[in-house]
Design a protein around this nucleic acid. Structure first.
Lengths: 241, 241
DNA sequence: ACCTGAACACCGTTCAAGT
DNA sequence: ACCTGAACACCGTTCAAGT
């Protein structure tokens, strides 16, 4: 935790013998420096050799603590998930709790933008972490009165949406352009004039509307859909239980 | 389109002069072979050098037709988007048309699993392609009677969900394990016994339920939410217009 | 105009050796 | 036990030269 940061590989390679019991290199220390590197310079800056330089250590030394680069990345995802903190919101309505969970998860992704792609796609690392953080989501959905199968469907829907949204936010900020929304309208109007009439109408109206697009509006759609599902006794098509 | 595939770099490097006007290397030909390579061997098999070998050409020749590796990848994403075909479904209800659009997009992602990560995250390539395929989605949502702002929110919600779902499908099949669902229950029960009671209940019930998890169930939740949004005259919180 | 080869500045990882 | 250095088999891309 309070490991000293090796700011530059400026220290001489010859260090004094480390105090007994306090190893120079630890898995946690490696991950901490790796996370800093990724946060500051992006995923493409993370190489085993660069990481070693940052740690003022021979590249190969790292392999004594983690099995390889893939393990470093998975470790980072894991570490970031461990940071997720939910608002306390115990006796709130289930809708509020679902919203709170989704927002907390979105914030988590948002606070490490360079890692978003791995967070949403590193199946192995994520599924473990997901198990640890998802209970409040499932509990809230159970309180909505849904049977198990519909709880699972609703939870997947929320999680998949959050993942997709995190990616969209990430690649719209990452890929250069500041004004992504107005940009779309421009490119649309550069197209043949009979194409995409509805989108033109929509984006034109949006251009005169300064309000930000709030992902909570999407969450509200999800919540209304889940409510409707909870009120529907008949079981939609195949989904009773 | 009907370019001959260079199966192995078995041809001698010394080729006869190509027929006039029919260049040996074209952007399309490069992308076609690259897509085949990615589909068959995955993203990590795609290197400029490997691609050149597949084309029986010097690695550097490729740079005369595309600006670099990133451009190849964006080109692939673009190419794949161009393949999207919607079911005709003109006079269907708007719900049916939204569902049809989402399913077609999911199928698109599904048919190139190794490219999913780029499809959902290559902002630059995607936003162009997105403009070309999204009109039917926006048109269906307009028919639902939503004002522009809510059309945009609903469309984003659908797109983000589809992206998240495509990723989840991809990494659950990619990351080894066959039985992903049962696997979760096992790992859950290996945890301290007081943890995640709701999730245990849900997954236990699901384990005795052989039916597949159908993403259409999630789409139905979205549709019910959008319907509720369309029926709500008051404008939810900040979203009138 | 189009293609090539050598070269540069990197990668991740294995393996045998050092302290 | 922990760390190291050389080596292997790769990368993407620049640049000057060939036909």
């Amino acid at each position: 935790m309070d490991r000293e940061k090796a700011e530059k590989p400026k220290q001489s390679k010859k260090l004094g013998r480390p105090r007994a019991g306090q190893e120079r290199l630890t898995r946690d220390g490696i991950l901490e420096v790796a996370l800093q590197l990724v946060d500051e310079e992006g995923m493409e800056a993370l190489s085993m050799r660069r990481l070693a330089a940052e740690l003022a250590v021979d590249p190969m030394s790292i392999y004594h603590h983690v099995s390889g680069k893939q393990a470093v990345i998975s470790g980072l995802v894991d570490k970031v998930f461990a940071e997720m903190r939910l608002p306390p919101s115990e006796e709130a309505a289930w809708q509020e709790r679902v919203r709170g969970w989704a927002v907390a998860y979105m914030d988590l992704a948002h606070s490490h933008p360079n890692l978003v792609l791995r967070i949403v796609s590193d199946g192995a690392a994520v599924s473990d972490a997901m198990l640890r953080i998802s209970e409040p989501l499932y509990a809230a959905l159970e309180e909505a009165g849904l049977p198990p199968r519909r709880i699972a469907v609703a939870a997947d829907t929320v999680v998949d949406f959050v993942h997709g949204h995190a990616l969209a936010e990430d690649s719209s900020t990452t890929s250069g352009d500041a004004n992504f929304e107005g940009d779309l309208l421009e490119r649309l109007e550069a197209q043949p004039s009979n194409s995409s009439p509805t989108m033109r109408r929509v984006f034109r109206a949006l251009a005169e509307d300064s309000r930000e697009m709030d992902p909570v509006a999407s969450l509200n759609i999800l919540l209304k859909g889940i409510e409707a599902d909870a009120d529907d006794e008949s079981g939609q098509a195949l989904d009773s239980v």
